[in-house]
């Protein structure tokens, strides 16, 4: 089983977003970068599958050198090697093009991703990669089991879930409860330092989209407190003041 796991290096979920350079850049100062939480689920399932079925897990990131701590952490969790495509990941299509180019050279049985990046929230890279490779793409995947060359998959749908059966190779966007997040242990951290991390240059240079500037949402007004004894007034206010019911 040859598994490729695509990971993002993203600001921690508790980050307060601020802007710099006249609102044309996100301020990275003091921001802690982590592996995308959904990507972490994908990686954890990949490591479990490797332990169960044998094979290799390769981690792939499209990003600058500042993503390397996140890549090393993925190696510490149990990936065997890593590839970094040395480029600013400017949009979903560009990232997908890079992933597809690597995949074409390597014949992976499974390409696992997170259901969505927690920075740009597109939920689309897996679909584009699937299309570029002519493979099925399925997301969000909550359960994944492999028997031979067949995958049994449970996917969340609005208001429920469905069970699917498909032949490998596949491109999947993962979410909980596909696996438990793995925390690297000391041995993992030590061995990660010497695992191979290959840096390659990007292919293609299409600009299909371009961010020109950013904006922060206005702060919510003060919270109107209603004494518990008068809870019923809330319903009146929701109707007459907020006009939402």
């Amino acid at each position: 089983m040859k598994i490729l796991v695509c990971v993002t290096s993203v600001p921690d979920t508790i980050t307060k977003i601020t802007l710099t350079d006249n609102n044309t850049k996100l301020n990275k100062a003091g921001v802690q970068f982590i592996t995308g939480p959904y990507d972490d689920y994908a990686l954890s399932r990949a490591v479990d599958l490797k332990e169960q079925l044998g094979g290799t897990v390769t981690v792939l990131n499209v990003g600058g050198a500042d993503a390397e701590p996140v890549i090393r952490k993925c190696l510490a969790v149990g990936a065997d090697d890593a590839i970094r495509v040395n480029a600013e990941p400017t949009d979903a299509y560009f990232v997908a093009e890079q992933i597809a180019a690597i995949a074409k050279e390597n014949n992976y049985d499974l390409i696992l991703m997170g259901r969505e990046s927690i920075d740009y929230n597109g939920g689309q890279v897996h679909g584009i990669v699937g299309e570029l490779l002519g493979l099925p793409s399925i997301s969000p995947v909550m359960k994944l089991n492999i028997e031979g060359t067949t995958a049994q998959i449970t996917r969340e749908i609005e208001g429920g879930h469905e069970d699917l059966e498909a032949s490998l190779p596949l491109v999947l966007g993962c979410q909980e409860p596909i696996a438990e997040w793995k925390i690297p242990n000391m041995r993992g951290i030590m061995s990660a330092r010497t695992k191979p991390l290959k840096v390659v240059e990007p292919t293609g240079n299409d600009t299909l989209t371009q961010v020109s500037s950013y904006e922060l949402p206005p702060a919510r007004g003060a919270c109107k407190m209603i004494p518990a004894e008068e809870a019923e007034t809330l319903i009146k206010l929701l109707r007459t003041e907020a006009k939402v019911i």
Partner: peptide, 23 residues
């Protein structure tokens, strides 16, 4: 923007080499 909309948009972007903006 929905679970189905995301997937259809993504596969279409792949087919058409389109610029894609989500949300």
């Amino acid at each position: 923007k929905s679970s189905l909309g995301d997937a259809v948009a993504a596969r279409l972007a792949g087919k058409l080499k389109a610029g894609l903006a989500a949300n």
